[in-house]
Design a protein around this nucleic acid. Structure first.
Length: 290
DNA sequence: ACGAGATCCTGTCAGC
DNA sequence: TGCTGACAGGATCTCG
């Protein structure tokens, strides 16, 4: 669920912890976190020096005896909570007794940082800052939909640049972070709706103008979602526990059967590459499913 | 080298 | 009411 705008909202919410020192670390005893447990626990005594975002990844930087970095992904259900000491102490049970928490940091400004990851699709893995730059997930990222200087030429190139191999449907392309970063299933459907492009169109059947229009809509949707602080459909929450409001702005996503906001034709839903896709068969009729 | 499909995981909800 | 199964989906893995 968290896509680029949600991750960026979370990142901005977490910025107050930059500059704080970690006094206490706890890592849940979970099989996916066990291999990294000691390395995460070794963050005790270090200072959080920065938190950046790359696509849907966040990178936490730490300085102590050595420089460390954590590659963090929220997956579908990852949530960071940042609580004051007062709120923290109002909990009726210790946080260790709540389900699905994975990483806890007690900070020297008397605040508490907790990473909750219900379906464990998310990750928090330790590296050096140099290893992060070389990491395949970071190195191969395409242009970011939240980038003020979104590289449209590069986007067009990546949409089409798959050599002689078969070209993917545009709906699948938008979920490939090596083509475009920060777009997920929701903003895929929303940007294709605004660009009036059917999600099942093979990318190489789109004109250069259509691809440029799609790039424009991707960044437009991304920035709007950021202004609305993301879409809270199920699990996504901001660091204070509040919901985003972008879910009220959808034209297509999760609106199967509802009238299209432009032409009133009912919105359709179909599975595309194991993911749901929503579109208006009238406005986005440039390609007919055979 | 790349695409398709399976896999990970658990809360929620529809249907019986 | 209570159970079962489908569903949600980002990244990564395997297979062809």
């Amino acid at each position: 669920m968290p896509e680029g705008p949600e991750v960026e909202t979370v990142r901005r919410g977490l910025l107050p912890v930059v500059g704080t020192k970690i006094l206490e670390v706890k890592v849940a005893d979970h099989k996916k976190y066990r291999p990294q447990r000691a390395e995460i626990e070794a963050l005790e005594g270090t200072t959080i020096t920065d938190i950046t975002r790359r696509g849907k990844f966040m990178v936490f930087y730490f300085e102590g005896n050595s420089r460390k970095a954590a590659l963090n992904h929220l997956g579908m259900t990852g949530v960071w909570y940042h609580y004051s000491d007062q709120v923290w102490n109002e909990f009726d049970v210790p946080f260790e007794e709540y389900p699905h928490w994975k990483v806890y940091f007690g900070l020297d400004d008397n605040t508490h940082l907790l990473f909750v990851n219900t379906r464990t699709f998310g990750r928090f893995e330790m590296f050096t800052p140099e290893e992060i730059e070389e990491h395949k997930s970071i190195r191969t990222l395409g242009p970011d939909i939240l980038d003020d200087e979104f590289d449209t030429d590069e986007f067009v190139k990546r949409m089409l640049g798959r050599g002689k191999s078969r070209i993917k449907e545009v709906g699948k392309c938008l979920l490939d972070y090596t083509i475009v970063a920060g777009c997920g299933n929701i903003y895929k459907s929303e940007s294709l709706f605004l660009a009036k492009i059917n999600p099942f169109t093979p990318a190489n059947q789109l004109s250069e103008n259509q691809l440029r229009e799609l790039a424009k809509r991707l960044t437009e949707v991304g920035k709007k979602a950021l202004r609305f602080q993301g879409s809270s459909l199920r699990d996504y929450r901001m660091v204070d526990g509040y919901s985003g409001l972008m879910q009220n702005e959808f034209n297509a996503y999760d609106r199967a059967g509802d009238p299209c906001s432009v032409c009133t034709t009912p919105i359709l839903k179909a599975t595309q590459g194991d993911r749901s896709s929503f579109w208006c068969p009238s406005c986005q009729d440039n390609f007919v499913i055979s």
